[in-house]
Amino acid sequence: MNKPAKARIASTSLAGCFGCHTSFLDMDERLLDLIGQVEFDRSPFTDIKHCGPCDIGIIEGGVCNAENVHVLREFRANCRILVAIGACAINGGLPALRNHLSVSSILEAVYRTDMIPNDPELPLLLDKVYPLHEVVRIDCFIPGCPPSSDTIWKVLTDLLAGRQPELSSRQIRYD
């Protein structure tokens, strides 16, 4: 008898700190349950460089530079359900504290006018740090800095079971 096909999950961190991914790993032995049900596509856990067709994409961090925009659009194009995880993905978070300053004033303060890096390999900074849903459509949000592994587990198990994720007020935290 054929086993049911595993769901495919991709994840990445844009302007984030990987804290949400660390919290994801905090689900401990439940990871074994999860790995029975899913396969990872592009993710820090696999080191696959580009996202292929997936059931669920999970994105941590806001959008701060041109590369973030490309990666986010690649995820949106390939993932049936796109999940914004963590404060930065949802409202820009800590990186967005730069949003009331101009990019030029920040670069000049950090590098001085004669030393601003200009290598074509470096992605250009955006004028502001944006939440994900201001750039592409997002289907599901998991707030928190980071969200607890219980909250992440709840959303993932809901999605894998084909349910609209529902978090109780106890599971919703912004800090």
Binding site: I138, F141, I142, L167, S169, I172, Y174
Partner: peptide
């Protein structure tokens, strides 16, 4: 939290 807000639908 009480009203189940997970994100804002509006631009910052």
């Amino acid at each position: 939290y009480e009203l189940g807000m997970t994100s804002s639908r509006f631009d910052q």
